[in-house]
Design a protein around this nucleic acid. Structure first.
Length: 120
RNA sequence: CAAGCGGGCCAGGCGGUCGCGGCCGGGUGUCCAACAGGGCAGGCCGGUCGAGGAAAGUCCGAACUCCAUCGGGCAGGGUGCUGGGUAACGCCCAGUGAGGGUGACCUCAAGGAAAGUGCAACAGAAACACACCGCCAAGGAUUAUCCCUAACCCUUGGUAAGGGUGAAAUGGCGAGGUAAGAGCUCACCGGCAACCGGGUGACCGGUUGGCCGGGCAAACCCCACCUGGAGCAAGGCCAAAUAGGGGAGGAGAGACGGCCCGUCUCGCUAUAACUUCCGGGUUGGCCGCUGGAGGCGGCGGGUAACCGCCGCCCUAGACAGAUGAUCGCCGCCCCCUUGGGGGAACAGAAUUCGGCUUAUCGGCCCGCUUGAGCC
RNA sequence: GCGCCCGUAGCUCAGCGGAUCAGAGCAUCAGUCUUCGGAACUGAGGGCCGUGGGUUCGAAUCCCGCCGGGCGCG
């Protein structure tokens, strides 16, 4: 995932946290806030409760890979934050990928042809 | 063959596809600019490199940077057999001593207890100068038969052999000796001192002497050695932004050249240069940032740790923080066993090294010990 | 990157410089009281002192190594 498609500032994360909507899943929480750049940027947050460095890196890599595989299907113009919950520690890739799928679908961020009211 | 001891090594391999980070190269979109060039933490293509033996815990030691510092000492902290290795160490190697194991081997903070202070519950007479029961001697009273004598009691004294207490009782054991005993004397053993011999040394061996008077310093302490403080968020540069404020010190400060002195600039009794602290602003960029007490191989020195010389190699440098996803074949382990299915640890760089400690599926190699069988 | 503190009964804590010293309060259980319950009173049970070593005659206590939890500074 390229650097300009990531959330990189603490203030960006705080903006999503304050002004965004949230959807919950046993493994993940998704927060979303529309931005004005026309580009969807994503950020990942993992608490220390998931374990030490190796486990937290593993969680971030799985989430990042799941987003990368679906990025072309996500509507543009949103700031997204994926927060790993404690149940995600030790999971394999497939459940994480389906959790990302469910969250994006419930949030209505998938730009499928059926429901495409084309944001601006 | 079985059981075991010590040491070393590996951390699945090869190849596709889609992605990520650093560096190099190519050409190029757009913006700024007269050009040079730069910005969009630009985009594209190609090449190359891309986690560990512990990267971990942060328990020690250093390098590096800043601050402090005339010199020396005290306090505080640390280390503690000897010799060597090292940049240094609380690490490593080789020895010594003590303890454990049939053995290969393993473990040990292992200086000082006649410098001083302190501690040891309960039990016991006593945990420092100790006599409870004993044993022995002298004197006295009573009883037995008048004496000799014997028993028992009292007083005084001797005695540490025996009993008993305890974790520990002032060397052990045997013989002589004695009123009874006692290193009082003797042999052996243990410890101490002196001398001789060996060793760089810790220490070891021998001879002689004398009979030698406990434990705990991971209790205070004494002795020897080491030790200024902070940490890459160190520290430096640029840009932006706020304020042009307050307190203290204050006669020198800065630059350049240069082997300790010169030259230049600013300032010199104050609304004062300059230094420092507080207050206020900034969460942007760059340097430090990876070539090093570096790896690999050979030769030489050394018992070894390690050192010297020569040759070859360059091997992560991120900043919301790069190694992921998926497929095929081979190798290892497990399960039903045509064929297939499942598993493969502990864990991830963050200034850099040297150690220690801890976590770890499985596998390989070398040396050695004990026991059994066979030749 | 530095620095500090705490792990003792189900819970909250004492015991911190060595031994009949493993304790207190709440909670639990039993009994007394009451028609019943609560309160009160009496009594009982319950602890590898986080873990592994070491020093010592003897360790919750002293020393070392780990594990878990919490806090502070830049």
């Amino acid at each position: 995932m390229k650097r300009r498609l990531r959330l990189r500032k603490g203030s960006d994360y705080q903006a999503v946290h304050r002004g965004g909507r949230f959807w919950r899943h046993p493994l993940l929480v998704l927060g979303a806030l529309p931005n004005e750049t026309g580009v969807t940027r994503c950020g990942i947050a993992v608490t220390k409760r998931l374990g030490r460095a190796a486990r937290r890196n593993r969680a971030k890599r799985m989430i990042r890979e799941a987003i990368r595989a679906r990025y072309d299907g996500i509507r543009p113009g949103w700031d997204l934050v994926f927060i790993a919950r404690e149940g995600l520690a030790g999971m394999s890739y497939q459940p994480v990928a389906s959790a990302v799928d469910q969250l994006l679908q419930r949030a209505g961020l998938l730009a499928g042809p059926a429901t495409a009211p084309t944001v601006q």
